[in-house]
Computed example of a mutant assay.
Amino acid sequence: MSSTLERRVVTLGGLRVGDGPAVVIRNRVSLRSSGVPQRRLGEGEAGHRFAEGALVEPASAADLPAIAARAAGVIVGASWTRDFPLVREAAATGLPIVVERRPGASLEEWLGVADYCAAQGNDRVILCETGLDLALLQRARAASGRPVIVDLSENVALAGAAVAAGADGLIVGAESAAQDGSDVGAGDGAHDGSPVEASAALEAAALIGTLVRAETPATLGECRQAIDRVDAALATLLERRVEIAGIVQTLKPVGGFAGRDPEREQALVARMARRAPRLGEERLAAIMNAVIEAGLHLAEEG
């Protein structure tokens, strides 16, 4: 088992996986059907089975030249992690390798496949949990230092839980390109077939990820994106606070501005200052006064 604890970052297409916000991957394609390898495909034919920049699982070694030329990364599928000749050839493409966990595989076996890829000279390895064992995800991330993503193709409702558990990325809407031979993907590469699922995963990555993942943006653009994520989380929390405060108004003997409790508000600000010492009580008091007044005005309007 790898004992390297230093956090590694792998660039997958235009995404930095393992550093900063959790990413959402919507262009995961398999050239297999139901885990059974299809007939061997030539380089040209395989290339037409997926959009450029996709994350692709080969059906056989014959697909690898097209994948190397067009894909963002290669998937070592859960069903063939023990096919070491194919794993070795996949690693030899030089593309980032996403190692899925075989059902029932131990942490040691899972990390062993990743280390095998690294031993072939390709250390751009991302681990992928497919069984939704979020505790194992945490252990893999801590033990290996490698990025760990989660395939949520079967249950995108767990997006929030996966991000909270430390997932560096989410895969949504995986497809099999071997079903009908048609091109997969168009436009922005999002071909999950369900914008709602992709939106749910993006929300989880933005909102929950903001609370649990530290970010160190290095450019103005990255800073603005990080601020946008924090602002989205703030807006969501403020809306929820206003909703609860509105309920409180109906339960108080005296509602509205007359029912304000200065001692409770002061205690609230003091508790917040312990979580945000750089802001301090004075600044937080002004912020929370504005929040409380906005909620009271909204309650009166309703």
Rank of each mutant, 00 (worst) to 15 (best):
F257Q: 07
S79Y: 06
R88P: 04
C223N: 07
W110S: 09
I287D: 05
Q266Y: 02
A270G: 06
N289E: 04
D192E: 10
T93I: 13
A61N: 02
S3L: 15
N155G: 07
G13V: 13
A205D: 13
G181E: 12
D19P: 02
L220G: 01
I25V: 15
D151N: 14
E239V: 14
V148N: 07
Q120L: 12
V242D: 03
L86E: 08
G94R: 05
G246C: 11
R8M: 11
Q249Y: 05
S3E: 11
S194I: 03
A162I: 04
E265R: 10
Q38H: 01
A71P: 01
L284I: 11
N289V: 00
L170T: 03
R229G: 01
V24C: 00
G53D: 14
G259M: 10
M288W: 10
E108S: 15
A270Q: 11
A214P: 00
L95V: 07
G73D: 10
I247M: 12
R49P: 12
E243P: 06
L152F: 04
I75M: 10
E263W: 02
A54Y: 00
R124V: 09
V163D: 13
E100R: 14
D115R: 13
A91I: 03
G302S: 15
S153I: 06
R40I: 09
G280C: 02
I287H: 04
D83L: 06
A92W: 00
L5M: 11
A59R: 00
H297C: 05
I287F: 05
V36D: 01
A140E: 09
V9G: 04
V99R: 11
H297R: 12
G131M: 13
P217C: 01
E300D: 04
N27T: 04
G35F: 06
V76M: 11
F257I: 04
G173W: 00
P253D: 15
G259S: 12
R8N: 07
R101Y: 05
E203P: 08
L132W: 01
E100F: 08
L55C: 13
I292G: 03
G35A: 07
A69N: 06
R271C: 14
G280T: 02
N289C: 07
E52D: 15
L284R: 09
V24K: 00
E265Q: 15
D168C: 04
S3H: 14
V36Y: 00
A276N: 10
P96C: 09
A66Y: 09
D133N: 14
G173K: 03
I227W: 01
S3M: 14
L15F: 05
D133V: 03
L41S: 09
A190R: 05
D228M: 08
V163Y: 02
R16P: 01
E89K: 10
A118N: 14
G193D: 08
D123I: 11
E293W: 02
E57I: 05
N27Y: 04
A177M: 03
I126G: 10
T130V: 14
L170Y: 02
S199P: 02
R49A: 12
E203G: 12
A90V: 01
R264S: 09
Q138K: 04
E293V: 11
S79L: 06
R283E: 14
A167S: 08
R28F: 05
E57F: 03
E6M: 13
E43I: 01
S176F: 02
L107C: 14
T210N: 11
G94H: 03
H191K: 05
G185D: 08
A62H: 06
F50I: 12
L64K: 09
A69F: 04
L158D: 07
A119E: 14
Q249T: 08
E175D: 07
